[in-house]
Amino acid sequence: MKPICYLGFSTAIIFSQMLVNGQTAAPKPLLEQAADPVVLTIGTTKVSKSEYEQFINALPPQIQTEAKGPNKRKVAEQYAELRLMAEEARKRKIDQTPAAKIQISLQQDQMLAQMLFRDLQTSVKMDDAAVQKYYDEHKNEYEEVKARHILVRFKDSRVPLREGQKELSDAEAMAKAQELKKQLDGGGDFAALAKTESDDTGTGAQGGDLGQFARGSMVPEFDTAAFSQPIGKVGDPVRSAFGYHVIKVEERKNKALTEMKDQIEKTLRPELAKAEVEAIKKANSISVDDGYFGK
């Protein structure tokens, strides 16, 4: 039989550590009670709105999201159950047993270590040179393209057949796409052809305009063509599960460092925090007895 686990993963550890003292708030004056209503009753213990919110706001961000979002009631019910069971354990003096004291101490150490790492992430000094270096090494990831396309579907395409349209074989669709490219190379109006010929009716109505998009936004075959073919030229038809795409890249540019700085810093902070952890470990020796623990 699996043990009962309240709130999942490490949330129970976090909750139990915050409940370890088992303290109950002193009664509030009547006027204050009216402004701060009781939102949770656990046995004889009453938890006010402000007390519960203070508790939730002290939890890690991912748990706060659950507690303030669609699982708000579920988290409150699980918290109440956990607190009820913890209080019963205290009545039975389980918290005073040697095993309980060791486990509580271990969980407290684990929680403090996690909180230290989060603190290191927020307090670590961000080096502008490191941000610039990361940006330069990942510049292609910040590239955007502005393009148009005309889609020619074939049988079993993932795009529905337009009303009154003939079902084309793969070879027929390829031939049509090549003919459209020929017309465009000869000076044909891309937007006009897209409106009449594209099987992507959504973008077709907009002259085939896809707007701006980043790498990885499109299916791989389309993505490769859009980020490699010459700007202003109509490329050779590209086949995907949707059909044959006739693509014209109108613009390709990189997002500026100023646009990406916050995202880069968010990416770098955990790595810089790990470096801080390694520095702490190096500054404090750890010795393990090989005879007892082995090598």
Rank of each mutant, 00 (worst) to 15 (best):
S240P: 08
L210R: 11
R118E: 09
K155H: 12
Q132A: 06
E53N: 12
Q212G: 12
Q212S: 15
V288T: 09
K266W: 10
Q96V: 00
K49D: 08
E163Q: 12
A80C: 07
R148I: 06
L84M: 15
N284W: 06
L151V: 02
E32K: 15
A130T: 07
E141L: 11
A241P: 01
L112G: 02
R83L: 07
T97N: 09
Q110G: 00
Q33L: 13
A191C: 04
D95P: 06
A273D: 11
K46F: 02
K233E: 13
M18P: 00
E265W: 04
S228K: 10
I286Y: 04
K195S: 05
E88P: 00
L168K: 13
T97H: 13
I13D: 07
P220M: 10
S198V: 02
K248I: 05
K255I: 01
K139Y: 12
D36W: 06
F117Q: 12
D127V: 06
A100K: 05
S48C: 05
Q17Y: 13
K274M: 12
I286S: 14
G235N: 05
R269H: 08
I102L: 15
K46W: 02
S157F: 11
A129E: 12
T267F: 14
P60D: 06
L268A: 12
Y135I: 03
D289R: 01
Q54T: 14
A173V: 02
F222A: 03
K182F: 08
P237A: 06
K176G: 02
S287A: 13
G207Q: 10
K281E: 15
P37Q: 11
F154I: 03
I150M: 04
E144M: 11
E81V: 01
A175L: 10
R118G: 00
L106Q: 09
E172Y: 09
A256K: 14
Q132G: 00
I104S: 10
G216E: 04
G243P: 01
T97F: 11
A177F: 13
M115C: 04
Y79T: 00
A205T: 14
E53P: 00
P61M: 14
A58R: 15
A192L: 11
I14N: 03
A89R: 03
P230D: 02
Q64L: 05
L31R: 02
S16Y: 14
D236V: 08
M18E: 13
K49V: 00
A35L: 15
K282N: 11
L268G: 10
G8S: 05
